[in-house]
Nucleic acid binder design. Structure first.
Lengths: 246, 246
DNA sequence: TCGGCTAGTTGGACTAGTCCAGATGGGTGA
DNA sequence: TCACCCATCTGGACTAGTCCAACTAGCCGA
């Protein structure tokens, strides 16, 4: 029988059915953005299946960015994505507010470190170069969605650590040091949450993330800093406009 | 005891240990790009755990793009990523070959369709507008890494379906119709494989993918087409350079 | 030599649980 | 009133299997 059916027509798996069913409820607005889903145990009972199977369906919806997790707290319906054009030099707060949403920033850590191998390579530094590391968590409508590690050249930013680091670094660069962005390079790639990132965003280890590594140069082409951004992947869509023809 | 330990120092989970162990072997070059990993059963025995736990570790490595899956065939070590700048107007083949790798293209389907709701919205079309749909699979060093659906305005491309669609559509546009790209818009977001996409790339349902939706305008700002690209997320890194200051 | 069959292996899908750590909220005592 | 404690609930981590469909490789016969 099944050999004559295209894979489309075959009876969908339980995981697919559960995913479909939850998606429908979300699309119909019965499950609204930010709402908590019933517990995994309650859902698995309602769908007459085991927790493992149910969790697989939730994992698919998670990689699609329709729902998100908070470690040991539960599953929630994802709010609309923030539209993020990495090329605009505007800072996080301005970008968020221009889309009618609220932004806050929290500093987790700020201090000198020694560059690791990956950073030396990306930034073209000598081995064991000193750097300033600033770790921040940024939230969208009171939900933590972005963890950033900034790595700055210490010689260009004397006294920076004493300033208020919760506001835009871009503005500090410009106003206090007269340094503005020129060309930047962005590497975008999906990855999984580990260690510090997972803890900062309240994610379980292995949860999907969108990583953006930006390398910023000033107007003269000299390196300013390197930012490692880790976004909850349901919270953002990268939208880029190519240049119109000259 | 554990209450005084930071989460970093705590004994890592089995999943984390297995992930770590496999990653090390890959980094050391003992498991080389393209090589198949031992079967799930063999690995779960070797790590003295169950298949489910083992699969979870593999899933994390998959979302990190260190390994990839072929449905019912097994797990393989991911080759280096292709560097993809969506803003360069160069076509797939040229981009791949400029990085010293081999590209091929296969046409799965080509014909007229009626635009669905999502396409009407993205392309700004009237409901039920007619479109030409071309589905292609593109491979990198003989591995299928990209599934693309092109949706074109039929009135701009009479007779297109009779041409050789395995080569660059960009070139066909230019050489046969005198149409060149102007500004384009890209939406990049991680998603999960379903239906046609999963089948075309030999992925299991729910596998992580990187979706890029591009909307192409011509030099006069008129719509040319909309491409829905689905990349195996281990196969590519998006690298974008912002414009230098004027 | 080559096509087709077949047995064995692989991943896919799923069941039915256990034990634990962290988050939550209600109640209690200062 | 408010801080703290504790019972309860949640997800996290893991075990030990079963059944099935699809892929594979090797054998066999034309």
């Amino acid at each position: 029988m099944s050999q004559w059916m295209s894979p489309d027509e075959r009876q969908p798996t339980q995981v697919a059915q559960i995913r479909q069913s939850l998606q429908e409820q979300i699309r119909a607005g019965l499950l609204r953005p930010g709402m908590r889903l019933p517990s995994e145990r309650a859902l698995s009972e309602r769908f007459a299946t085991t927790r493992i199977t149910l969790k697989e369906a939730l994992a698919v919806l998670e990689t699609e960015g329709q729902i998100y997790r908070e470690e040991r707290r539960g599953w929630f319906v994802a709010p609309p994505r923030l539209i993020y054009d990495p090329r605009t030099k505007s800072h996080f707060q301005a970008m968020v507010e221009s889309q009618g949403r609220a932004a806050t920033t929290r500093v987790l850590q700020a201090g000198p470190v020694v560059a690791n191998a990956e950073l030396c390579q990306r930034m073209g530094l000598a081995p064991l170069s000193p750097l300033l590391k600033i770790c921040r968590v940024r939230s969208l409508d009171s939900r933590d969605v972005l963890y950033v590690e900034h790595y700055l050249l210490p010689e260009r930013f004397p006294g920076l650590l004493e300033m208020d680091l919760t506001c835009s670094l871009t503005r500090l660069y410009a106003e206090r040091y007269g340094i503005g962005y020129g060309q930047s390079t962005f590497d975008i790639l999906p990855t999984a949450a580990h260690g510090a990132v997972a803890r900062a965003l309240g994610l379980p280890q292995g949860a999907p993330l969108l990583q953006i590594c930006r390398l910023n140069l000033d107007g003269q082409g000299r390196l300013i800093d390197c930012d490692m951004e880790y976004w909850r992947q349901d919270a953002v869509v990268i939208r880029i406009q190519s240049d119109p023809l000259p």
